[in-house]
Every structure is written in C-alpha cells, then in structure tokens.
C-alpha cells in the first residue's frame, strides 16, 4: 500500500496541526522547524502504518523525511 500525497497532507494538518497552506512538495519540514523533533516520531509511525512498511534505522534520515516529496518517494521505493 502506498502513502498518497493527500493522506500525508491530511496527517500533517489534522494529526500534527501544521498549517499546510504554505507547504509544497519540496518544503523543508524539519530543518525549517515547521515540524519539531517530537513530531518526527509520530510522522514515522504514520508512514509505517499507512504505507504498511517498516523503516529500518538506516533509512530514518533527513534525506528521506525532510519534505513531503522525500517521504512519498521513500514510501514508493519501499512499497515496490
């Protein structure tokens, strides 16, 4: 199962209470402080549950998590 753009934006908006109006695919989420370090864990749990995947520790990097586009691309590769 693949996480969709709409699923992810809905979680950011409703689950993490982030104002998603200014977030596009490449917006940095963590390095720009839109999402804090604690919310990162909640986001990982969401991706694993919604995508039916398991993120190994080596994959928990800003490269895979710092933007909506990066997260969707990562989930897509894991779902293949």
């Amino acid at each position: 199962m693949t996480v969709t753009h709409d699923d992810l934006m809905a979680f950011l908006r409703d689950g993490l209470h982030v104002d998603t109006s200014s977030i596009d695919t490449d917006t940095a989420l963590f390095t720009s402080s839109l999402i804090d370090s604690f919310a990162m864990v909640e986001l990982i749990v969401f991706l694993e549950k919604a995508g039916e995947i398991r993120m190994p520790p080596a994959d928990v990097t800003l490269t895979n998590l710092d933007s909506v586009g990066a997260m969707l691309a990562y989930c897509a590769t894991r779902a293949d």
Partner: peptide, 20 residues
C-alpha cells in the same frame, strides 16, 4: 549532532526524549 546523534538514536529507540 542532529544528523549523526539525534537521528540514529531516535531511529533505533523511537524515543525522542532519549535522542534529545
């Protein structure tokens, strides 16, 4: 430290308090 301490510790423990 965010890249080489926080992220690896958080990834293994899933506990942001420990990672911080």
């Amino acid at each position: 430290c965010q890249a080489y301490v926080y992220m690896p510790v958080m990834a293994r423990t899933r506990n942001p308090v420990v990672a911080v």
